[in-house]
């Protein structure tokens, strides 16, 4: 499957609060960031933790402004997020 995102793209992190294991930290939920790079393809942790078959999927380093995440702070936080956790922002 072709990658959905490229460096520079603006993306929104999922706002879903899943009942199972996930690697999308809650502090990024619903926040908009910028793709820095594609880190490679890896099976989705949410699926592997539940013993479900999981096709490798792209993971991206996504940079968020602290102000977007917390309403304060002058730093950035770069979070590694699977494609399933991200939506395009037009």
């Amino acid at each position: 499957m072709a990658d959905l995102f490229a460096p520079g793209d603006r993306v929104r992190a999922t706002s879903v609060d899943p009942p199972h294991h996930t690697r999308a930290p809650r502090y990024v939920r619903g926040a908009v960031g910028t793709v820095v790079e594609r880190e490679g393809v890896f099976p989705l942790a949410d699926d592997r933790a539940r013993g479900l078959p999981s096709a490798p999927e792209a993971v991206y380093a996504v940079r968020f402004a602290a102000r977007e995440l917390f309403g304060e702070g002058d730093h950035d936080v770069t979070v590694a997020l699977w494609e399933s956790y991200l939506r395009a922002v037009s």
């Binding site: 993971v59 380093a61 002058d74 730093h75 950035d76 936080v77 770069t78 979070v79 699977w82």
Partner: peptide, 26 residues
């Protein structure tokens, strides 16, 4: 910045900080 200060590391305000959260496979 506060956390770095607790480590005794005073970073000048002009230096921008990026925190990397190792949340996936890198």
């Amino acid at each position: 910045r506060s956390v770095l200060a607790e480590f005794g590391f005073a970073l000048p305000d002009a230096v921008a900080i990026t925190v990397w959260d190792a949340s996936a496979e890198t």
